[in-house]
Amino acid sequence: MKNKIKLELRRNPISFIFFFIGFAIIVFVVGTLFNMLYKQLIVSPTYFIAILKDQYVLKSIGLTLYASVLSTILAVIFGIPLAYAIARNNFYGKNIIESLIDIPVIIPHTVAGIALFSLLSRRGTVGSIFGNLGIVFQDSLWGVVIAMFFVSYPLFVNSAKEGFISVNPNFERVARTLGASQWKSFYQIAIPLSYHNLISGAIMSWARGISEFGAVVVIAYYPMIASTLIFYRFNTGGLQESQPIAVLLILLCFVIFVFLRLISKKKG
């Protein structure tokens, strides 16, 4: 047995060595989060318990979840057509469009926030038009949603695009010859076959929305989402006041994340 491990190590050294090197990342992530959870939940849980009764905190977490769900819905509504169009067609400038989609991922998020602010604030180019219609972005729920959307839709679009690309286009062609209109072949064949990518893209985009701070804080400091509130409490009351909120947010996200993964696995 010992000999076998030795033989494997000699024959297949990369897997072993890389595994140990790579493991450092896992230790780093788990260690950072566990340290915080351990302090808050085991060593001195009183602050954490107090937070659970803090209406302001609960409201801001509720707002964060609500706004990120709305932003994910927007990403799905606009992202599916975009992803499908890119996946199924070759056209001049396709590479450029694909690069443009990724821009929100590479620019600093405060920069994204400033760009959105200049466009959508009360006096912004588009913001003033929407203002006349009664929709305000600056310091409002819609500001939060639009900032989350801006930074998180690429995750959905890219995942959906990969999903559509992985579906053999012959399936849809055969469906057409069997009598399906293009719409039917799209939602009866392409959508169910890329279901996993659509779900995981939506989850990633939603998670990205929850975690957003930089873009949101510029356009909508109020109403305070969880990450803004954590930052605010960190500035005014330090770790003691900010950390318990962070822990609550982590726990909530973790539970929802695991739940969604489980139901999406079951369906597939």
């Binding site: 012959n170 062609r173 055969v174 057409r176 010859t177 069997l178 009598g179 399906a180 209109s181």
Partner: peptide, 11 residues
């Protein structure tokens, strides 16, 4: 359109 032609097709 293909869906109206009523032709069987095997890839």
């Amino acid at each position: 359109v293909p869906e109206k032609r009523n032709l069987g097709f095997l890839y």
